[in-house]
Amino acid sequence: MKFQELITSFTSQAEAMGARVIPAARPGEIGPKLVEVLRPLGSKIALVDSPLVKTAGVEAALAGAGFNVDKDGPEFARQADTGIVEFEYGIAETGTLAMDATDLKTRLAAMLPLTCVALLPAERVRANLTEVIDAYLERGPWPGYFTLVTGPSRTADIERSLTIGVHGPERLFIILVGENGGDSRGR
């Protein structure tokens, strides 16, 4: 599959599963986009550092806009409104995010708050799960805690009525970062 096709498929599948895909052409756009979408959703942020988070200056952008950014401590992510983490791969076939989540803070930030923001470099989108598994097998020992996330937390346990946000996030934003992140259609 060509890059643009991967991005288009990833975006439409992820949105079909209830995620919102927000393209950012450059890392520098991440901060302003975050400020814009998170403004109405509470000021407490659990942020997990990553090279992209650093180059993009996410912490400074959020702090500058008046958000309360938490990066550590025993209560990390427990009371946060939003958790921000970088994922390692996207899967075009199902609109899925993948990462090695062995690091405890990564897991907590992605699981506990009502809103989860996933940062994903657009060039990390792969066609299917097999390709992603291959990528991890090449990297070395299988990760201790490997996670696939597709859309927000959901249940249909009461009268089969689809309800979003049970134990995990009720909102999943995917910031697709890269020169070719393009618009939401991947163009």
Partner: peptide, 10 residues
């Protein structure tokens, strides 16, 4: 097509 979460613990 897939469940919201697939978790693999090693």
């Amino acid at each position: 097509p897939i469940t919201s979460y697939v978790t693999m613990i090693t």
